[in-house]
Design a protein around this nucleic acid. Structure first.
Length: 103
DNA sequence: GTTATGACTCCAG
DNA sequence: ACTGGAGCCATAA
């Protein structure tokens, strides 16, 4: 709840809330989060960039499972550390996608 | 209120 | 599989 101590737009707070709910070893795509908060994938990216130090941005990946770009490839290492199944450099959404729709 | 930018996603070649 | 172009929405100036 460290995030609540700062003033932020309702949209950003919603995005941070969803990302914060992603369990370890699981990932969510920008578009999926955007759909949950009612925004667009780009807007979600902007929020993550602003909260990269307080948010699990490495658990958020592209629609095809590619780890979020910036900062080189540190995301892959973090994902491995989180026990996220990687497949040829991309996240295996077949197993890591969350919520895992029924599983 | 308008313009420009961005950690996105989809479609076509 | 990769690249380029267009669409999408929130934030900042």
């Amino acid at each position: 709840m460290a995030k609540s101590t700062h003033s932020v737009s309702s949209f950003a707070r919603s995005v941070l809330d969803v990302v914060d709910r992603i369990p370890q070893g699981r990932v969510m795509s920008y578009g999926a989060i955007a759909d949950q908060v009612g925004g667009s994938a780009r807007s979600v990216g902007g929020v993550l960039s602003a909260w990269s130090e307080e948010t699990n941005w490495h658990r958020v990946v592209y629609a095809d499972g590619t780890p979020a770009s910036c900062h080189g490839n540190s995301a892959s290492g973090l994902l491995i550390d989180e026990e996220v199944p990687l497949l040829n450099g991309r996240v295996d959404l077949t197993r890591a996608r969350w919520p895992d729709n029924g599983r």
